[in-house]
Design a protein around this nucleic acid. Structure first.
Length: 416
DNA sequence: CAAATGCCTTAGGG
DNA sequence: ACCCTAAGGCATT
């Protein structure tokens, strides 16, 4: 019988305000966590990590794979050869991993407070969404995960990432089930070489990846074959090194800036500004990266009156930068984190929380609701309704906006 | 540089 | 049942 090396449950004192895994693990950062009952599971750095949380503690447990394959029916992919430490030091290692993964070096309470002081909208939205943190994920996994995310929704992205692990990643351990052969066998995320082989694109298309299949295959090939070894890791923020980076690189990493890292990522296939910023923020430790997707763009227009003069629905690279710069100006060096809080508050899957009537209603909210009511009559043509809404919002926001917009335009044009 | 269009698939609303 | 469209964009023209 294969001996799985299982550590006992350990616990870390942590309030739900500092970290809420139930929100953080579901808000579109990582697509790989599985929830069973009250426990969360994911394979991370060669081990199965299990988490559960109460008011005062984060409980965690690590399960290491045995040397032989943990899967009895499918020895498809060999177990990753990440050397398990001796059992007595196992706990320390995993606690360190958790502290790093959840970026616990930052004080969430203090940062929420700072953002609330500088931003009335954040102050209004954030109280229902405390405990959200930016995950310090593996850069490669983040890259592929967010390539999958284009034109896509969270549940389908999760399915796709799961398929990548199942077909190309090393199996590690099982969750659920009573005996060793029961339950679901979880796999780690495949490395670039595993996705760079011939026939990967066709296979991924068959698995339902659509046009993203080519992006993944090409990017894997570029990273595994064209770029120098550890190229992706060298784009990491020196202030926030990856887990275990100290042992591997010491301090001899080239100094890169956020902009340089962002530009480098754009050389990959299927990676535009938004995906690049997702990787910068969640995989490379650049806290100032603000990924602007359709949701954040909606938030920027609705709550911050940005882009009022834009006539069309498409939005340019210049506008992308403007939105990011605006939020960096308000929120500072961890702007991407603050963005993630508002993004989550805007997600439909969390709408039960945001639907509750806020205690204080400002003038701004009343105005918006009035507009929505005026909007509600014509159902004949959708496009027309959307257009009307945009125009009306413009009318309201013109005065507030004009100065701001002019200033931003000037700045962004002088930068080039 | 702004704007328009094709790209794959699926879940969910009408 | 069946259409239609939105869904956390990117590449190309």
């Amino acid at each position: 019988m294969p001996s799985l090396r299982v550590s006992e449950w350990r616990k870390l004192p942590l309030s739900l305000t500092e970290l809420c895994i139930d929100t953080t693990l579901r808000c579109g950062q990582s697509f790989r966590w599985k929830k069973t009952d009250d426990e969360w599971h994911m394979v991370l750095h060669g081990r199965l990590l299990s988490l559960k949380q109460d008011d005062t503690y984060l409980h965690y447990k690590a399960t290491w794979p045995s040397k032989t394959s943990p899967g009895s029916e499918k020895p498809s992919v060999p177990v990753k050869e990440e050397s398990p430490p001796p059992l007595d030091s196992l706990a320390d290692d995993t606690e360190d991993l958790i502290r790093h993964y959840f970026s616990l070096k930052h004080d969430a309470g203090a940062l929420y407070e700072q953002w609330s002081q500088n931003d009335a909208n954040f102050r209004r939205k954030a109280p229902r969404f405390t405990g959200i943190r930016i995950l310090s994920q593996d850069a490669w996994e983040a890259l592929i995960g967010f390539i999958c995310s284009s034109n896509n929704n969270i549940s389908r992205i999760s399915q796709m990432v799961h398929k990548l692990c199942l077909h190309y990643g090393p199996s590690v351990a099982r969750i659920g089930g009573g005996s060793a052969d029961d339950g679901e066998l979880l796999h780690d995320f495949p490395d670039a070489a595993a996705l760079a082989g011939a026939g990967v694109e066709a296979h991924l298309r068959q698995l339902g990846f659509g046009y993203r299949a080519r992006y993944i295959a090409e990017t894997a090939r570029i990273v595994a074959q064209d770029k120098p070894p550890e190229w992706l890791e060298t784009l990491t923020n020196p202030e926030s090194p990856g887990w275990g980076a100290a042992e591997r690189y010491g301090t001899k990493l080239d100094r890169v800036s956020y902009r340089e890292a962002h530009d480098e990522l754009l050389t990959l296939s299927g990676v535009g500004p938004k995906v690049a910023d997702c990787v910068c923020l969640m995989g490379l430790g650049w806290g100032e990266a603000v990924p602007v997707d359709t949701h954040v763009w909606q938030i920027a227009q609705r709550d911050y009156k940005l882009g009022g003069k834009v006539k069309s629905k498409t939005f340019s690279k210049a506008m992308y930068d403007t939105v990011g710069d605006h939020f960096r100006g308000i929120w500072g060096s961890q702007a991407g984190w603050a963005q993630s809080v508002l993004f989550t508050a805007n997600l439909k899957s969390f709408s039960d929380r945001s639907a509750v009537k806020p205690e204080v209603e400002g003038i701004k909210i009343e105005v918006e609701e009035k507009l929505v009511l005026e909007e509600a009559k014509p159902k004949t043509k959708r496009k027309r309704a959307v257009l009307t809404e945009t125009v009306k919002l413009e009318e309201v926001s013109v005065k507030i906006e004009d100065n701001d917009t002019k200033r931003r335009r000037t700045r962004s044009s002088t930068r080039k």
